[in-house]
Simulated assay, not measured.
Amino acid sequence: MKFTVSEKYKNQGRRKTIYAAILVVALIAGFIFMFVNSSDLSKKVIAAIGIFLLAKYLPHAYRSIKNHDTSYPEVEILEPQEKIDISHKGAVVSMPLSDIESLRIQSIKGNVKSLLLTTKSFRNLRFEGYENLAEMAELLKKYTPAGKTKNAAWFHR
């Protein structure tokens, strides 16, 4: 069964990135204003350092906004072959379902919000924002060792 990230989740992430970029630009504008209008050398140095430290995040924010839709992998659980395929930008990584050590399911108000899968191969895999996340949890429960499935009361980031 294939699982993809929902458009709603992608839009929320893009929106958060845009808001953060706007905040950084506003802070840089404030530092530029401080640099231009202050006569005190210490304030000019603080403003220049602030501009320098914040400006290095702008290219990263631009790339993040531009490539946001392609930054989420597609997950496919193949029960007959007993493996998980995670594909991202043409590359596919496979992992046997027998490598699952534990599964944490984080639910809010009865809806599954995220899964944290601990494996022998990759250590921790977190799935958040995928469509049909409850179905993914049920499929993964089948292959999780007995007593190693936990419903998390706190968010497990």
Rank of each mutant, 00 (worst) to 15 (best):
K2N: 15
K2I: 14
F3R: 00
T4Y: 08
K8S: 08
K8H: 12
K8T: 14
Y9G: 07
N11E: 05
N11L: 08
G13E: 09
G13D: 03
R15V: 00
K16H: 05
K16Q: 04
K16G: 03
T17K: 14
T17Q: 15
T17R: 15
I18F: 01
I18L: 08
I18H: 09
A21C: 03
I22V: 08
I22R: 04
V24S: 04
L27P: 04
A29R: 02
A29H: 06
F31M: 06
F33Q: 06
F35N: 14
F35M: 06
N37E: 09
D40W: 07
S42P: 01
S42T: 13
K44F: 00
K44D: 02
V45K: 15
I46C: 04
I49K: 12
I49Q: 12
G50P: 00
L54D: 10
K56Y: 09
H60Q: 06
H60E: 05
H60P: 02
A61F: 09
R63I: 02
R63D: 10
S64K: 12
S64N: 15
I65K: 12
I65L: 15
I65H: 14
I65V: 15
T70W: 04
Y72D: 11
P73D: 10
L78Q: 14
E82F: 03
I84A: 14
D85S: 13
S87M: 05
S87Y: 04
H88E: 05
H88Y: 12
H88A: 02
G90N: 09
A91V: 00
V93S: 01
V93M: 12
S94Y: 03
P96E: 08
L97R: 10
S98R: 03
S102H: 11
I105C: 03
Q106S: 12
S107L: 07
I108E: 01
K109Q: 13
G110S: 02
V112N: 02
K113D: 06
K113L: 04
L116G: 00
L117Y: 12
L117N: 13
L117A: 09
L117D: 09
T118Q: 09
T119R: 05
S121V: 15
F122K: 01
F122E: 03
R123Y: 06
R123H: 09
R123D: 11
L125P: 01
R126A: 10
G129A: 02
G129M: 07
Y130V: 05
N132F: 11
N132E: 09
L133G: 05
A134Y: 02
E135M: 08
M136Q: 07
L139W: 00
L140M: 02
K142L: 00
T144F: 01
P145W: 04
P145Y: 03
A146Q: 07
T149C: 01
K150L: 03
K150V: 00
K150I: 02
N151M: 06
W154T: 08
W154R: 04
W154I: 06
F155W: 07
F155G: 00
R157Q: 10
